[in-house]
Design a protein around this nucleic acid. Sequence first.
DNA 1: GCACTTATGGTCAACATGACCATAAGTTGA
DNA 2: TCAACTTATGGTCATGTTGACCATAAGTGC
Lengths: 260, 260
Amino acid sequence: MSYGTMSVSERRMLPPAVAVSSVAFALRPPEHALLGPGTPVAAGAEATLWLPLVRRMRPPFSGRWALPGGPIPWDETLVDTALRTLRAAVLRDPGYLEQLYSFGAVERSADAQRLVTIAYWALYGEQDLASAEGEGDRDLRSEPDPNVAWFSADALPELAFDHGEIVAYALDRLRSKTEYSTVAYRFLGDRFTLAQLREVREAILGEPVDPANFRRQALAQGHLVDTGERTSGERHRPARLYRFKGTEQHHSARAPRSTP
Amino acid sequence: MSYGTMSVSERRMLPPAVAVSSVAFALRPPEHALLGPGTPVAAGAEATLWLPLVRRMRPPFSGRWALPGGPIPWDETLVDTALRTLRAAVLRDPGYLEQLYSFGAVERSADAQRLVTIAYWALYGEQDLASAEGEGDRDLRSEPDPNVAWFSADALPELAFDHGEIVAYALDRLRSKTEYSTVAYRFLGDRFTLAQLREVREAILGEPVDPANFRRQALAQGHLVDTGERTSGERHRPARLYRFKGTEQHHSARAPRSTP
DNA sequence: GCACTTATGGTCAACATGACCATAAGTTGA
DNA sequence: TCAACTTATGGTCATGTTGACCATAAGTGC
């Protein structure tokens, strides 16, 4: 759809358009910064949060980096729009996706038609970013599209719209949610040690967590199953491998029940 | 704006429109059901939650009761749209207002143009519903508009769109939020007893709360100030009157920081 | 075997919670 | 006047949770 010869003031007085944008988090160790996420989180490394951005090719904010997203087609669910646009940028489906908040300030789209954005936040775990089988080189280590890139959440460029604010809000939600829910599990693969799970928590919260106390609480939650397997090859006592007793669904199309 | 001779299928394929709807809670004792809210919550009465609905006068869902709300004008903030439409229905400004969730299922507006609704939830306290000065009879006990009515949250009629689901979600949020925040205070006036505050909590959670334990916790929060005043005239020991050490703002135009 | 490193298992004091008991201090009615 | 009644308010106590910390376990690398 084109607005043809419509003037700026005419464009601004159109009814607001609706779009979806997503903040998608992945965890990766800083040493592998050049390799892109998809690299397993090495034990002992200080992992940090990264997220994919897309360079805008048209006004408003042409040339700026922005969250993956786009307008909502008339026959597509909000979640599906989020998934489709994430898939287009990351080439993978996220392991978790949840609605975040809706942003509708009058001036957020500058001179263009007013844009109300429904923000989602997503999570890409290790296995979600691993190269799909038979996909050859089309993995994240050789990202073909120069207009898509991953950035450290600590060092983002200036973003289009109010996307900086959206990212800050998503970080907030991620942090508060790791304190009372099981989202953190989704950053890890099928089997993991308690140390890995603790490192995820430390990376998200940005502060050290006592290993013994963390273990006590994590096991008390009852969400973990001891697989009976152990790690080996490391220069210390082997750790038990656990599995997440997952019953939660990945994508919530419906409004989740109470999200404090 | 009219869609003229546009056919149903053409209308459905338009880009989604955006609207705001609000679930506005008020507390009132059941004895005063016929009087409408605005009546102070009498001590000892079992208060219940009520909310205002508006009868739809046009398709889709013409004739059905719906949440107060409406489309977002091009130059109006989301919060302002919520406030304006609430004011139109209730004739008062709410004491609290917060964004809830956005609903965008494809089929929710039936045959009409697809409608994405950003839901808000609001709270009308005692003083918010008291007759404004000099407003004469234009108070809630003589509601002039037959197309606006308050319903008990326990016994709602069948609502338009997916508004029933929105109400359920709002109730959920209200309940979970009374457990860790200070929203409940807003249902009461300037000064109140701990018993009144406890009754608000009981009404929202729907279960009895131990008076002594509640007192201990409420005071430990540090949000209450003893005014030095006491109640009198009741058939028992007088209670201290407290005031809320309120620093929180009523309406949050910006996304609130982390809402578990 | 020995040193080293993280995993794992416990202890302990401080604090929070829920169930309850006891007394305080008004009002009402004999 | 005074005793009965009713809710307010102040405590106790056992239980559970949390954070700080100590001790031992069990691999690897030399």
